[in-house]
């Protein structure tokens, strides 16, 4: 199922997208729980089917482990767990979106891919802050987009993979290089 969808997305939309330079306003949308989330297509490297993940001990629970992407070893995080939702079983609809944020490759496990949408700036509204302040995932969501009668929560991948994660990792690398 997921693979069919992948194929569709890759052949239909991705090619168009890649040919068309203006990836602006294009969002890859996916479903987690009942909500629809979107991530700017410019971050997305590729989409792969779920595959065996090698768990790493002693890390935050949302870091599921490592996968082997054609010889490159990249970490994957479960977006559901990241949003502090109950983890759910991985099915054949579960996909990994490989994103590239500031040269760091990371896989995002999402329940189900939805589509690739063009969302006009006008349709994006900032998330309402009232009453939702304590809500955890608000910080990853930079906007709400309305398309028809559905609402998509647009994610900021840089916040999603947590800025400080990268910073501390970079520091460690630098320290190691120095010693």
């Amino acid at each position: 199922m997921a693979e069919d969808l992948l194929k569709k997305v890759e052949t239909d939309d991705m090619e168009e997208l890649l040919e068309d330079d203006s990836q602006k306003g294009m969002y890859m949308t996916f479903q987690i729980g009942k909500e629809l989330f979107g991530i700017s297509i410019s971050y997305v490297n590729e989409i792969i089917a779920m595959q065996p993940i090698a768990a790493i001990p002693e890390v935050d629970d949302y870091i599921k482990g490592l996968i082997n992407l054609r010889g490159k070893i990249i970490p994957v995080i479960d977006v559901r767990v990241r949003f502090k939702m109950e983890p759910c079983e991985y099915t054949d609809r579960t996909c990994i979106i490989v994103i590239d944020v500031k040269s760091t490759m990371i896989g995002l496990i999402v329940e189900r891919l939805a589509d690739v949408d063009t969302i006009a700036e006008d349709n994006i509204a900032p998330p309402p802050s009232l009453g939702r302040k304590e809500h955890e995932h608000n910080k990853y969501v930079f906007g709400l987009a309305r398309t028809g009668d559905t609402v998509t929560l647009l994610l900021d991948p840089e916040k999603l993979i947590r800025q400080d994660d990268i910073v501390t990792a970079m520091e460690e690398v630098r320290k190691e290089e120095q010693s």
Partner: peptide
Amino acid sequence: VKPIPSYVRKVKGLSGCTQLGDGSIAL
């Protein structure tokens, strides 16, 4: 030997990871 991606914080007792013959990853 491949390094564990820097995104993952260093875990004590693990020096890296590798790919086994079947493509799976071992620490």
